[in-house]
């Protein structure tokens, strides 16, 4: 009950914070000197991207805790999948908001910048993770395999990032980094940005909690299923009369001629 209350409280808070961010971002803060109203994406895009990385971080930690024997529990697997799903949604949002910002700012929807490319690969990487979880397997096997996949992804992301940075910087300057530096953030804008970060982090926590609840509920459903099966199994094995009959009157299938002869 308390967890339901907490979940609702987090949900309401996150909605209020997002609403506040919208108001602050659209009406209170001034337009940027260079980018005009476009700069208002600042209050959405970086927080969304941060949440995506935060979500994958949580997935990685939970997966590691699942694989480590002393802490092995399907609870971690549920946290991992809950967080990864929200992470994929936010990675998608990061790519979309980035594109929307990039089109007017740089004149293109997409550029082969290191950060963009890494994010795109990250998106596909975790789509694969979620697809892997869809293979019909027993919960323990699925948990183990997806934890291995999540940890490989965790090791892979910095490698992807470094390789893409070298790939690009050996040829051209990092476009986003220089553009980003032009946008001076101060005063009310900084506060709104901070608000954005808090708001989207709360949204993430809320979504992950709801998703975790769904996982727990389906696990509980499986547990009731298990109890039903267990009862069924027990009933199978304790049909009393017949068993007693078998015990007391040796059936012809059991007592072979050879055995009788030896006695």
């Amino acid at each position: 009950m308390t967890s339901t209350l907490l979940r609702k409280a987090v949900g309401v808070t996150s909605l209020l914070l997002v609403a506040a961010t919208v108001v602050m971002g659209l009406f209170v803060t001034p337009p940027d000197v260079v980018q005009g109203n476009l700069a208002r994406l600042l209050y959405v895009h970086p927080p969304v991207a941060w949440v995506a990385y935060l979500a994958y971080g949580v997935t990685s930690i939970a997966s590691g805790l699942y694989l480590w024997r002393p802490t092995r529990s399907l609870k971690w697997d549920r946290i991992a999948v809950a967080s990864a799903e929200v992470g994929v949604v936010f990675t998608g949002l990061t790519l979309v908001t980035g594109s929307i910002w990039g089109r007017p700012a740089w004149g293109v929807w997409w550029t082969w910048d290191a950060r963009l490319t890494t994010t795109a690969i990250l998106f596909v990487l975790y789509l694969g993770y979620l697809a892997l979880r869809r293979i019909p397997l027993s919960p323990e096997v699925r948990a183990k395999r997806s934890a291995v996949a999540a940890l490989i992804a965790f090791i892979d992301v910095p490698i992807v990032h470094e390789s893409v940075v070298w790939w690009r910087t050996l040829h051209q300057g990092a476009t986003v980094a220089t553009l980003g530096a032009n946008t001076k953030v101060h005063g009310i804008m900084a506060w709104t940005l901070l608000l954005g970060f808090i708001a989207f982090t709360m949204v993430y926590i809320w979504m992950a909690m709801v998703r975790y609840r769904v996982e727990t509920m389906s696990a509980e459903l499986e547990a009731t299923q298990f109890e039903a099966w267990e009862a069924e199994r027990l009933a199978e094995s304790t049909t009393g009369d017949e068993a007693i009959g078998r015990l007391l009157d040796p059936s012809p299938g059991v007592q072979s001629d050879q055995g009788v002869a030896r006695r």
Binding site: T238, V254, Q255, Q258
Partner: peptide, 14 residues
């Protein structure tokens, strides 16, 4: 039956 043993009948093997 039902995932367990029922009426194990011991019998000495030759």
């Amino acid at each position: 039956v039902g995932g367990t043993t029922r009426g194990a009948i011991p019998r000495p093997s030759p």
